[in-house]
Structure formats: structure tokens, C-alpha cells
Design a protein around this nucleic acid. Sequence first.
DNA 1: TGAATACTTGACTATTTTAGTCGGGTATAT
DNA 2: ATATACCCGACTAAAATAGTCAAGTATTCA
Lengths: 139, 139
Amino acid sequence: MKLNTKSRYAVMALADMSKFPINNPVSLRDISLRQSISLLYLEQIFLKLKKNDIVKSVRGTNGGYVLKRDPKNIKLSEIFQALDQKVKTVGCKKDSKKGCNGKSAKCITHELWDELEIYINNFFENKKLSDLSLTKGDI
Amino acid sequence: MKLNTKSRYAVMALADMSKFPINNPVSLRDISLRQSISLLYLEQIFLKLKKNDIVKSVRGTNGGYVLKRDPKNIKLSEIFQALDQKVKTVGCKKDSKKGCNGKSAKCITHELWDELEIYINNFFENKKLSDLSLTKGDI
DNA sequence: TGAATACTTGACTATTTTAGTCGGGTATAT
DNA sequence: ATATACCCGACTAAAATAGTCAAGTATTCA
Ligand code: FES
Ligand code: FES
């Protein structure tokens, strides 16, 4: 079970942004430099965050991205969803009657993995961007 | 975040075994047929389970594998460890002072991911093989 | 107006990981 | 003897990951 860089970088970048006054555009270039994340990769990530209403963009000089909502109201689960990132512990399609082995019933461990999936999703659902409790020094 | 087949199959196979009288060797061939898991893949998995004292082998005709301990005493975390499978949510080396970005300090999200890692490991630590509560019909 | 900044978008690619397979063993019961 | 079933290292196809690249468009400021 590994967490991918996309999700990690997304949260890292948003945490970085959340340290600045809201409505003050933060450029990806700055985030890239501060957090040592590839600028081109960040662009890819922020496009999705924008499409999912987590940030909005301000074009042109002194432009950048702005959090669309208060960090208190941004759940980690939303960030993950925005990046098409899912917690997948079961081996089967959830909405199908079929099991991970192709048989007509769910396998003997299905319930266990489903429980784990709910458990993990619960973590993301209950964590807000504001919970990262950063100090200025962290950046 | 995805769970790999190796871990899933390992638990599935052990759950299958745990339905049979202890000390009664269960052959991989049978598990393979019942659970629709590749026999060759199962061999690879069981070699590791054996090395880690979760099962023991009985060679020859009517041989197979036997659980080395009561399912009540086999934690999922042990099974994962046996397969070299780790929960890895942080992007850095844990024992290093360096961050995931190569900088000299841990990044602003490190604490969060570490918390998640502990949270997930906690699930595996508290689940035992016996917790799968199977009925004969499940197999 | 024009140069610089910074977002926009789709396609492309190298590397790594996953999910197995293959081949050639060895031990044991009957 | 022979069939069964574990043993073990090496190999490989396919998928996912972690980016990069090219070619834009919009806005600000001098
Ligand atoms: S995990 Fe859903 S059927 Fe096996
Ligand atoms: S995850 Fe550990 S330093 Fe970033």
C-alpha cells in the first residue's frame, strides 16, 4: 500500500498556499521553489484541483492560484477525488455481484478489504486542510 | 492507494486453510482450484509465509501446508511483513533527518502522512486471521 | 504596444512496480 | 518406481507512476 506523489504533492502545495492570505494569488513557480516540486508536474495537478473547485486561477503577471474555500472546509478526501485517486483494497468491482476471482459470489476476504477501505477513507474524510497546523517556519 | 494481489491472495489462501482441521495439510493445488489463484503464484507466496513461520510444509504425496499457529494468533500485519509488503505513505526515509524533497528537514505534510501510516498499520495489527469469521459455505 | 509572467492542455516517455510464468529441482507416501 | 507436492531463482509482459514537452492563451506593467 503506497501513497503516490500526486496526492502527496497536491496536499503539500495546498498546505503551502494556505499559509498565505486568502485572495492573494500564489504562483506555482513559488510553490515549486519552496517545496521542491517540479513546476510542470504542479501544473498538471492544479488543473485538476481547479476543475474540482478547490482552487481558482488568476492569470497574468502576479497571478497564480487562490484557495476557493477556507482550509477548514477542504477535506483531504476531496483533494484525492479531484486527482482521481481512490483507495482500492478490494480486488473486485464494487457494484458487481461477481467476485475478484470471476466467480459469481464475493470472495471470502471481500468483507475484510471492504472494511479496510472504509477505514482508510474515513481518515481522509475527517481530515481538513486546516488540520495540518503549520507554523510559518514550516515553509 | 491500492492493495496488491500478493497480500490479498495470501490472506485469502490462509483463510481458506483455516477452515480445515489443523495439522491436516492443505495442498496449494486445492487452494488454487477453490480460490482461483494461480498455483505458481501461490507457491511463491507460501515460500515466504513459510520462511516467516506462519505455515509449515509437509512434502510428498498428500502433503501441503499447515498453519503453524492458531488463526487467533496470526495477525494480518505478520502476513504483510512476511511478504515484504509495507504501508508507505510518507515520501521520505523514516530514519533519515532529510525530507522527501531532499531538504534537510521533514516537509510540511510529513506528520500527516506519518499519522496515516500509523492509522493503517493499526488496522492490520488488530486484525487476526480468525476475525474473518468464515462459514463453511464461503469456501 | 510589447515583453514578461503565469495559467492551459493534450500528448508523450522513461522508469518502476506488479502480477504473474518458467524451468528445473527435492522430498515423501504408496 | 512413480506420482504428488513442495522448493527456488530467474525471467517477462503489462500496467502504473512520475514526470516532461510543445505549443499555446490571458493579463499586467513599463
Ligand atoms: S475482494 Fe471483492 S470478491 Fe474478492
Ligand atoms: S513525507 Fe517525510 S518529509 Fe515529506
